[in-house]
Design a protein around this nucleic acid. Structure first.
Lengths: 246, 246
DNA sequence: TAGTGGTCTAGACCACGCA
DNA sequence: GCGTGGTCTAGACCACTAT
């Protein structure tokens, strides 16, 4: 069952993509869209709010909505699922566990995963590839309560998220990510097949269940010649933030 | 004039920040919040939608809302305004124009700024600092119609955005940003006072007016030991995206 | 000043989760 | 099956933009 406002958002998105509304031009007013689709103004507003949050259109009180871009960049909703992201681009994801060990949680582990200090957690070092080429190095720490299921996975498993869902019903629902750049260390360089000190795009993240319980935290390093992140923003509101260290 | 839903969002945000609702606990149901604040359910929903988009709470049909985080990271809305961002952190922003020249637009300039090829554009190389320390190198190209106002600015101007607004009424309203990592080149290293090949966090962006008209595009390089970006996401929807270059 | 998007209401029904 | 959040309506009024 698809909500009407999503259908309308879809139609508008497509109309913009095929340049029926060109970048810089104005969208029809709410009342006209409501009449056209046979819905109330509230439903139209829900639809255009979606496009606004996608950065496709801009909105200000008193003025007509304006088209800002014709296409939305690939969704980032799959950040936690490398495999789904690869599939959406029509590429093949692979994975390979380099090492894996059960260890007592450090203070950092305990804090990020909201566990008592010393709980046994699972540390996994995994290389992920696109079409066979190594792209990403994941250093992940899993909470004790999910560690057995992770340890039981095939070391070559291409989609950890999907397997864990099938095996245990676990859903990775929310994530908090911090992005910066680091120089490749010796191990990074060897496993990714690049030179030492090459710049890498690093994402440190904590992933939680739908209930807000932390499942894992990870230091992910992407080859910066292979991956980039993109984001829209506006004066009104924005989801990404910039932070200074120290 | 503050909207009621914003006031309510603020109160809830503060209640979460002071741990009246702790991370992992449940928010009151909509009807109760509506009664408590003396508003309709719709207004409550607007307020909690704001917190949801900030990553503070999680929402799923049928289940109670859950608190995911107690504090929101610094807003990224000021990505376009280095000075405002610095001020929000209680730090002092500085700026210094290293070089500036009027040149015919390259094909890339013309495309990004939606100008005819060969239009005269202004290229500016600027170092930005926090509390006197160089942090960011901006290589910006301004559209012809704003170039005179930019060229007339004080080379040491700390807030370009604010000065342009005061001088011309121009508002930087929307931005599209692509984030990756690069190694510092010779010029980068010299101007930022770091070693060559140090990893830098690069943001390439296009900024537009409220009408969707491109004003400038820029290659910004941040010292990665000084700045990071952060973002929330959820399975539902997310504003940031990840792209492979190949 | 006319027209637009933003706010808010009061009510109805539905899809989903959880026990 | 009950309670929750999600969808949708029809109408009112307001704040802001544009002319």
């Amino acid at each position: 069952m698809t909500a009407r406002h999503e259908e309308i958002a879809d139609e508008l998105r497509r109309a913009i993509a095929r340049e029926e509304y060109t970048v810089g031009s104005l969208l029809p007013v709410e009342t006209e869209l409501a009449a056209r689709y046979g819905v109330s103004r509230g439903t139209v507003r829900q639809a255009v709010a979606t496009l606004t949050s996608e950065g496709l259109i801009g909105s200000r009180q008193g003025a007509r909505r304006v088209v800002l871009a014709s296409r939305r960049s690939q969704s980032f909703a799959e950040l936690r699922s490398f495999a789904q992201w690869a599939r959406a681009m029509g590429r093949r994801a692979s994975g390979h566990v380099v090492s894996q060990e059960l260890r007592p949680a450090t203070d950092e582990d305990a804090e990020r995963l909201q566990l008592p200090a010393g709980t046994e957690v699972l540390r996994v070092l995994r290389v992920r590839g696109l079409d066979g080429e190594p792209i990403l190095l994941e250093r992940t720490v899993y909470a004790d309560w999910i560690a057995p299921a992770v340890a039981a996975l095939d070391p070559e498993c291409a989609s950890v998220t999907q397997r864990l869902y099938e095996d245990t019903g676990l859903v990775f629902a929310y994530g908090e990510h911090v992005i910066d750049a680091v120089a490749a260390g010796a191990q990074d360089a060897e496993l990714l097949g690049i030179r030492r000190t090459s710049p890498l795009l690093r994402v440190r993240r904590v992933t939680t269940t739908r209930e807000g319980r932390p499942v894992e935290w990870s230091d992910d390093r992407y080859r910066s010649d292979a991956v980039s992140f993109s984001v829209h923003n506006s004066t009104d509101r924005n989801p990404l933030s910039r932070e200074a260290s120290d």
